[in-house]
Design a protein around this nucleic acid. Structure first.
Lengths: 122, 122
DNA sequence: CGTCGTTATGCATATCGGTACATATCGAAA
DNA sequence: TTTCGATATGTACCGATATGCATAACGACG
């Protein structure tokens, strides 16, 4: 089952002008690694292939080495996989997410208590 | 002068379904605190008064107590100010930003080195 | 008691991110 | 050599989000 609040914090990192990575691109990279295809990753995430492909292009353009290598043709029609750089970037992002969630959990709890979602108990 | 990369990380926190706070609302709260007016804060941030007001409404609705109190009329025409809750929320968010920036600085530096922005030096 | 700048709110419009669709290309396997 | 599914890319359209503008109410002060 999913937790009540899926993600407490959304982290978006600006690495350079126009080069950003957030939950969307990270999840896409992960989906590509797991499915071995850009289109399957896009379907899984409920986004159009157009957009998935464009995100991959943006990522590949943003880094010195491509994060995703795609191939056309073949019995499976083609496919895609993460490069070493791709795995490195994805893992670094996940690590940032974990660290962030850890250090801000206190403030999150404090602020959630002020939310109108949670009735006052005085 | 501004730093080369204005903000390394954008942090958006989900406190409850529909209740979120990120850089935009935090900056808006800060601008309201400093200018004493929703419209002046909106102008400073380059957004329409309409939107600034709606963001304030969203914030006030999301918490048990309002974060911003506004008044109409008077010699100045009216104005707005943060409540104690407003200051608490803003300060908690800033603290989360600081902590986050601290713990992810290592990964940021690693990833920036992979950016096509920075030429390879082999 | 009229002036002034702000809050508050509705509505029409513009902008932009994303989708939908259409087409071309590729290459291993049957 | 035909088939198949995926990559690659262009174009038209849609919908959400934000702006622009218009209007009303407000109230201390001169």
């Amino acid at each position: 089952m999913e937790p009540a609040v899926p993600a407490l914090a959304h982290l978006r990192v600006v690495l350079a002008p126009g080069v950003e990575i957030g939950p969307g691109k990270a999840d896409l990279l992960e989906a590509i690694a797991e499915t071995g295809s850009i289109s399957a990753a896009g379907r899984r995430m409920g986004m159009s292939y157009r957009r998935a492909w464009q995100l991959v292009e943006t990522l590949n353009d943003g880094f010195r080495e491509p994060l995703v290598i795609a191939s056309r043709g073949g019995n499976a029609g083609g496919g895609a996989a993460l490069t070493d750089a791709g795995r490195t970037v994805l893992e670094a992002y996940r690590e940032m997410q974990r660290k962030t969630a850890r250090v801000i959990s206190g403030e999150i709890a404090s602020l959630r208590a002020l939310t109108s979602d949670i009735p006052d108990e005085t």
